[in-house]
Amino acid sequence: MSKTILRSDEFSCPSCVAKIEKALAATPGVESARVHFNTGRIEVDHDATASVEALVAAVRSAGYEARPAAF
């Protein structure tokens, strides 16, 4: 189990939060995901079956570009 932090600076409306969280949760290997509108930070708890690229792709499928961050 590992934790990946993604950052996006494209959120313009808090309604996207639930959408992205659901898209991430639907990705195989993802345990849980939290999206913070105010800071644009996305925290994902996942196991080895979900790669960081897969997480970025999931966020993209919800309509937003994100990139991995160290903290």
């Binding site: 639930a18 959408k19 659901k22 898209a23 309509g63």
Partner: peptide, 15 residues
């Protein structure tokens, strides 16, 4: 529309 459908698929009523 694509975004609306994506949201709807996740059972979310979006703007």
């Amino acid at each position: 529309a694509v975004r609306a459908v994506q949201a709807l698929r996740l059972r979310h009523l979006s703007i």
